[in-house]
């Protein structure tokens, strides 16, 4: 076992941080380390939080974390913000809301950019969850901005997914209707100090009635004022209840299986992509094929079959 892994298992902050970077960069060292780490994972409870920009996700995480810390649990936080598709850079601003937690040894916060995964979660997030899990964090919370693919991806990683909604934003209800209704295990109506809370709660509840009809668990709808720390205890209780529900119904194993499946597919996809696009020889070959497509000597389909043919041989 490498030093870095040993140090991580001891909870060394710098080693944790470094391995996360290596994993993000698809470094070979990370691949080896992640293999060593896997046996030590599976203990952390993983919570996903998604919702529109500025809905108070980070503030909510800060408050939840404070409460978990009071209960003696350690917490890892992964805050994901979109990478700019133009420059490949990212502004990661979630930490601002959580600075007071940073001084606590029992909390580890890491900001990630989505790094061009078609709006989805960065593939490294699976690794980061495992690293934080292995280093002994009892709870791992993942924050993503709720737009498009990232929102759907998060349920594959999290045991419990919270969807945060704010009052008076008709459009966020619209997005829910547009098909991501299924992802929430708990709805959190944050900023309940704002006008229009009752109406928003009612709207979400009526949506829940439709989507949960005939199911044994009805998605709870809670209201919080994260900024004032209100409603957080009830939220934490609901998270725990959901966890017991998963365990009781054996959905928990299913959920974890789903995560590993997603991770496995992701690793394979990444490997294939790098095989096709990275290896010098392949690049050359693709260039040749592109020339031939342009000259009408072949067509994209035939070219694709040709490339895949060599791999699958």
């Amino acid at each position: 076992m490498s030093d870095i892994v040993q140090n991580i298992l001891k909870g060394d902050q710098r080693s944790i941080a470094r391995l996360i970077t290596l994993a993000e960069n698809n470094d070979k060292i990370a691949t080896t380390a992640m293999k060593d780490i896997h046996p030590y994972t599976g203990n952390a409870q993983v919570i996903g939080i998604t919702g529109v920009m500025g809905s108070g996700k980070s503030t909510l995480i800060c408050e939840l974390t404070r409460l978990y810390r009071k209960l003696g649990k350690t917490v890892g936080i992964i805050a994901i913000d979109p990478t700019s598709p133009f420059s490949g850079g990212a502004l990661l601003g979630d930490r601002v809301r959580m600075m007071e937690l940073a001084m606590d040894d029992g909390v580890f916060i890491r900001s990630l950019g989505t790094r061009g995964m078609l709006g989805g979660l960065t593939s490294a997030v699976y690794d980061v969850v495992e690293i934080l899990d292995a280093c002994g964090k009892d709870v791992v919370i993942v924050e993503t901005v709720g737009v498009g693919q990232a929102e759907v991806d998060i349920i594959k990683i999290a045991d419990t997914t919270l969807v945060v909604i704010v009052p008076g934003l008709g459009d966020s209800i619209q997005t829910l209707k547009a098909g991501v209704m299924e992802i929430a295990d708990i709805y959190v109506i944050n900023k309940a100090d704002r006008p229009g809370v009752e109406q928003t709660i009612a709207e979400v509840e009526s949506l829940v009635d439709i989507t949960c009809s005939g199911k044994d668990r009805k998605t709870p709808v809670l209201s919080t004022i994260a900024k004032q720390g209100k409603g957080i205890d009830v939220l934490l209780q609901e998270i725990e209840d959901h966890r017991s529900y998963l365990e009781k119904t054996h959905l928990f194993e299913k959920q974890r299986r789903l995560r590993y499946e997603a991770e496995l597919v992701e690793i394979i996809r990444k490997r294939l992509m790098s095989f096709i696009f990275d290896e010098q020889t392949c690049k050359q070959r693709i260039n040749d094929l592109l020339d031939r497509i342009g000259e009408k000597k072949t067509d994209p389909y035939t070219a694709a079959e040709e490339i895949l043919g060599t791999i699958l041989k």
Partner: peptide
């Protein structure tokens, strides 16, 4: 990738963030 920490940070907070990030 830029991590912004906001205002009024103590040296301890900045260094802690630098380590974790």
């Amino acid at each position: 990738e830029v991590i912004y920490t906001g205002l009024h940070q103590t040296a301890e907070m900045i260094v802690e963030a630098a380590i974790q990030e």
